[in-house]
Amino acid sequence: MLGKELLTYVDHTLLNPIATWEEIKVVCEDALAYHTASVCIPPDFVASAHNAYPDLTVCTVVGFPLGYQTTEAKVAETKQAIEEGASEIDMVINLGDVKQGDYHAITEEIKALKAICGEKILKVIIEACSLTKDEKVELCRCVTEGGADFIKTSTGFGSGGATLEDVQLIKKHIGPHVQIKAAGGIRSVEAMKAYIEAGCTRIGASAAVGLLQNRLDEQV
């Protein structure tokens, strides 16, 4: 795979809470220049990014990073993000519902946000580092039944990020229409390739452009 091909899997990400518009502009311009899948930025910058870069695929986060907002709050966030130009939404599930076994509530929340997204992409962040194996399996069912487009391993703000073991487990239990996004701690070309080989079709990363911008036409 060429470096430029690897970048097409990447959601070029800047979710630092102290990020400025000047910094956001840099990642937006990099995403356009290097043809990443999207740029993933905080909700407050979606409108500015869409207006400044109308050809850019803008992804943003909902219920981020802890997921314990009400469904109504997440619905409102999702509506605003889409109205302001987001094409992709990465939502965080309510981990409290997982721990109390209320998987129905999780599924219904996913359905509610997917209904707003329509043809736009909804990714569901499960924060795998906080879950048992059985909980991860149950969430694969929730994401599948909820109609989401992707299941995503991590926020990058938890105690751990993506692992190949989690991706392999998820791949066994998601429905055929659900894709996998690995995120959190992916900071090497080798790691990106390993996750793609394991079945991921998206990689959330802040380092990818820096790693590959001088290797676009090289086999990596």
Rank of each mutant, 00 (worst) to 15 (best):
E109Y: 06
A105S: 15
G85H: 08
E109P: 00
T78R: 06
Y68A: 11
K99V: 08
G96D: 11
C59H: 03
Y103M: 05
V62H: 04
Y103T: 10
I89L: 14
S87R: 14
D97Q: 13
I82P: 02
P65Y: 08
V61F: 09
Q69K: 08
L66R: 10
D97G: 00
A76V: 00
E108L: 08
V58T: 00
E88L: 05
A105D: 10
G67H: 10
I106A: 06
G67Y: 11
T70S: 15
E77H: 12
Y68K: 05
A86L: 03
K99G: 04
G85Q: 06
Y68M: 09
T107H: 01
E83A: 15
K74R: 13
V75F: 01
G67E: 07
T107I: 01
I106Y: 05
A76S: 13
I89D: 03
Q100C: 13
N94P: 00
Y103S: 07
P65V: 01
A76R: 12
I89V: 12
I82N: 06
L95T: 10
K74V: 03
D102I: 03
G101S: 03
S87I: 03
I106H: 07
K79T: 12
I82G: 08
E88N: 03
T70Y: 06
A76W: 05
E72Q: 15
D102Q: 09
V61G: 01
P65C: 05
D97F: 14
E108R: 11
Q80A: 14
T71I: 13
S87Q: 15
G85P: 12
A73N: 13
Q69V: 02
I110K: 09
Q69R: 04
Q80I: 09
E84A: 12
G101T: 01
P65A: 11
E109K: 01
A86M: 05
T78Y: 01
I110W: 10
I82W: 01
V75C: 07
G96W: 06
M91F: 06
V92T: 03
G63E: 01
E83C: 12
V75H: 00
I82V: 15
H104Q: 14
